[in-house]
Design a protein around this nucleic acid. Structure first.
Lengths: 407, 407
DNA sequence: CTAAATTTCTCGACTGTCGAGAAAATAATT
DNA sequence: AATTATTTTCTCGACAGTCGAGAAATTTAG
C-alpha cells in the first residue's frame, strides 16, 4: 500500500537532497548545490534559509575568493548540530568512536572483550558502560547524541537493533534496543559488519562511476565468513542487506560447524575449518573457538611450499566460497564481488578453488566469471560504512522531525 | 542518486494512488476513494476531474441508491481507455489474451508450439503472427494496445524484455523488445512465469492481511523448477524477482542437467530427473527433452505402493528442493513458501525430502521450518499475476505521460 | 412540504517550486 | 576614482498542489 504524497513531503525530500549533496562534496555554494541537486536557485535559497535557521547548516566564513564577481558563500553542516557514536564489536574487542555531524572523528578508544560465551549479560553491560564513558569524556549533553550505530559479525534482525545469532554468543539473542533505550534517547541501529563494508564500497562506486553502479557484494574472510550486498533500488537509494552466508548450507551432512549445524560454508572456509582440514582432523570434530592468525600463516606458508594437505585445505575453502557465491548469484543478478577481511592474505591460495567453485554453476557458465576484487583494509571500510549509513539516517531523521528555527 | 521532488510529482503519485484504489476495490464513490487513499475530498475532486477529462475514468451510470442523502456517483475505469495483450508461453503452446483497461478478458486463443529447439526465429515469428491475429480479431486500432505482457519459463533479463535462457532454446537469447518494437508502439514487458505466480499471491496476501505481509516465495514444480519472490519495499511497493533457482547448484559434480551443467537443482527435482532416478539411469545420462505427466504418475503410483527406488527418487527431489530453499532463506529473510505447478500432485511424496533438505540448514534450525502452502492452480495465478503487474504498469505510464483532456 | 442526512463541489489559505530579474559584491578597465 | 563587466545571491510573482470548511445538491423521512 503506497502512501499519499504532499507538498510538505516534497520539501522534506528536497531538503534531504541538499544535505546529501553537502555530505558528498563537502562545503558547497548556493550555485553548486543547485547544480548538484538540479533544484532551482530560488528553492535552494528557501531550503538553505530553513536549514540555517534550524541550526543544521551554517555559512562558512572563509570564502576562497575565486576570480571576479560576487564571492560565493559556502554552506556546511554545523558540526555541533548533533553527534554519532559508532560501536564496532570485533572478535577481540569493542571500539567506541564519537563523531560529529560533519563526520569528523572526535574521540575513540577500544576495550578488551571477554570471550566468555555465557557472559551475554556482562557483555551488554560493558557496552552500556563504554557508551557512558565516551559520553563522559566528551562532556557533551546526552541529548546531543542523535544516533548510536553498532556493528558486529553475525546475523542481525531485519528491523530491530538486535543480534539474532553471533559467533560468540550463538543463538542467545542480544537486543541492544531494549538494553540501551532506558539510558539513551538516541536512535539505535545495528548492522552486520560485512553489510557496512558493502555500504562503504557501494558509496564509493556511486561516487566514482554513478552511471554504471547497480549492485555489489562484499565477502569477508576470517574466523567467520560474512557477506554483504548493496544494490541500487528503483528510487535511486542504496539498499544494503546482510545474508546469513557463512552458515548457508554448502554440503549436506558436511563438516561440523561452530553453529552446531553440519555443512555450513564456514565449516569449510572459516579459519578453524582450514586448520582442521590441513591437520586432517575428522570433520565432525568440534571446532576450535579461536585460531591465532599466526597458526594459519604457518599453514599458508606450508601450502605455498607445496605441502599437499595444506594447499588442499585452502582449495577446499575456496570451492566452498565459490559454490556459495554461485548460489548467491543464481538468486540475485550478476554483480562484482569484493573480498575483504584478514583472509585476503591467503587469496593466492584460495583463488583457484573459488574459481572452480564458481565455475560449477550454470549462471557463471552462462554469464561468465563475476569480477572479483581484493580489498584488504576491512577495518577502515567498516568505519566508513558506519558513517555513510548513520549520517544519512541522521539527515533523514532531522528533516523528518520537522525543522524549527531556533529563537 | 536520488532525484528531486516537485509538486507535479505529488499529483502523479496521488493519481496513481486513486487508480490503484479503483483497481483494488472496483467502482468507488468520491468519499470511498478519499477513505481508501487518505487524500482529502477536495483533492479527490481535483484528481478525478482531471482523470475524467482525460477519458481515463468515467462516472458510472447505475447508482445503487443507498439510504438517504445525495446519491453517490461511482467512478470506474473506462474500459476503452486502452488494452493489454497477455502472452503466456508454456511448454506446449502459447496463449494470447486480450484484456481491456478494467481487467476484463475480451478475447483469448491458444496456439500449438513447435518443439524445435533450433526454431527460435520461427518461434518469435509465430508470436508476431499471434499478436497480429488477436489484434485483427478485435478490430481495435493498434495504438489502443498500450502494453504487451509476456511470460515464459526460464531466465529473463533484469531490465530488457529479453529471455536470457529458456528450457527450450537454451542460451539462444530471445529479445522480444527488438522483435516487436518495429510493429508495435505498445510497451513490452516480460516476466518469468513463477515470478508472476508470486506477484499474484503477493497481491492476494496484501489484500487479505495488509498489515502482516512482508514477503513470499512461489516454487513451481514441473518439467523445470522455477522460483519467484515478492517482497514489500520500504516505499510500500511490491517488488518481484525471478531467481535462476532451477539451475542453482545443488551438488557439485552432481547429475547432468538439461542446461549442460552438472548438479543443478533441476537435475534432481525436474520431472525428467525424478524419472531418471527412479529408473536408475546413470546420472550423467543426457536428460529426456520431455516427460509425459502420465509417465510420472505411474512412478508416483509405484512409490505410493512402496516401490523403493521410485519413492527414493521423489525423496531425493524433495531434498534438492529443500536444500535450495534453505539457501534461498539464508540469503533473504524468513518467508512463507507457496508450492505450485503440476508437481504439486506429488507433494505427498516430496514433502518428507523437502523438510529433510530444509532442516539441514542453520537458518531453519534457528528460525524453524518456513510455512509451506500447496497452491495447485498455477495457470490462473499466472494470468492474475500478469493482470496485477501489467495494469499497474499501465496506470503508471498513463499518469506519467501527462494527463491531457480530450477536446 | 419541510427537515434531516449524506454526498459532492467550491473557495480561500497554505506550502512548495520555478523563472526572471533585481541586488550585491568583487575585478578589470578607463 | 569612477565605471563597467561578471558572478553570485536574493526576492518577487506566477503557478501547481493539498487541505479544511462550508456551500450546494439531492435524496429520504416525517
Amino acid at each position: 500500500m503506497l502512501t499519499k504524497s504532499s507538498t510538505e513531503l516534497v520539501r522534506q525530500r528536497n531538503s534531504v537532497l541538499v544535505l546529501a549533496a553537502l555530505r558528498r562534496h563537502g562545503a558547497l555554494a548556493h550555485t553548486e548545490i543547485s547544480d548538484s541537486t538540479k533544484l532551482s536557485s530560488a528553492t535552494i535559497s528557501a531550503i538553505t534559509a530553513d536549514l540555517e535557521k534550524a541550526q543544521i547548516i551554517e555559512k562558512s566564513e572563509q570564502q576562497a575568493t575565486t576570480g571576479r564577481g560576487r564571492p560565493r558563500v559556502l554552506f556546511r553542516q554545523r558540526r555541533d548540530c548533533g553527534y554519532l557514536v559508532v560501536v564496532i564489536i570485533s572478535s577481540d574487542g569493542v571500539q567506541y568512536s564519537l563523531v560529529d555531524y560533519s563526520g569528523r572523528l572526535i574521540d575513540r578508544f577500544s576495550e578488551e572483550r571477554s570471550h566468555d560465551p555465557a557472559g551475554a549479560e556482562r557483555f551488554v553491560a560493558s557496552i552500556r558502560e563504554g557508551l557512558s564513558r565516551i559520553l563522559a569524556r566528551s562532556k557533551l549533553p546526552q541529548e546531543k547524541v542523535l544516533l548510536i550505530s553498532i556493528s558486529s559479525k553475525g546475523l542481525v534482525h531485519p528491523t530491530e537493533p538486535a543480534l539474532v545469532w553471533s559467533p560468540i554468543f550463538g543463538s542467545k539473542q542480544i537486543d541492544f534496543g531494549s538494553v540501551l533505550r532506558p539510558d539513551w534517547q538516541a536512535k539505535i541501529i545495528l548492522g552486520n559488519e560485512t553489510q557496512l563494508v558493502a555500504a562503504a564500497l557501494g558509496a564509493h562506486e556511486e561516487n566514482t562511476r554513478p552511471a554504471e553502479f547497480r549492485s555489489l557484494a562484499a565477502l569477508s574472510l576470517g574466523h567467520s565468513v560474512g557477506l554483504g550486498i548493496v544494490r541500487r533500488t528503483g528510487q535511486g537509494e542504496r539498499e544494503i542487506s546482510a545474508p546469513n552466508f557463512g552458515h548457508m548450507l554448502h554440503m549436506a551432512n558436511g563438516g561440523l560447524c561452530r553453529c552446531g549445524s553440519k555443512g555450513c560454508i564456514e565449516a569449510y572456509a572459516g579459519f578453524y575449518a582450514i586448520l582442521r582440514m590441513a591437520f586432517e582432523v575428522p570433520l565432525d570434530t568440534i571446532p576450535a573457538k579461536f585460531v591465532p592468525v599466526a597458526e594459519l600463516d604457518k599453514i599458508a606458508a606450508q601450502a605455498r611450499q607445496g605441502h599437499r594437505m595444506s594447499a588442499f585445505a585452502f582449495r577446499q575453502a575456496g570451492v566452498a566460497l565459490g559454490n556459495g557465491l554461485s548460489r548467491m548469484l543464481s538468486l540475485t543478478e550478476r554483480m562484482p564481488i569484493a573480498i575483504t577481511g584478514p583472509g585476503t592474505r591467503y587469496y593466492d591460495l584460495l583463488r583457484q578453488g573459488v574459481e572452480e567453485g564458481l565455475g560449477q554453476a550454470h549462471v557463471v557458465r552462462m554469464e561468465g566469471m563475476p569480477e572479483i576484487r581484493v580489498v584488504p583494509d576491512e577495518p577502515n571500510l567498516v568505519f566508513e560504512g558506519h558513517l555513510d549509513r548513520a549520517l544519512s539516517v541522521i539527515d533523514q531523521d532531522i528533516v523528518m522531525s520537522g525543522i524549527q528555527g531556533a529563537d
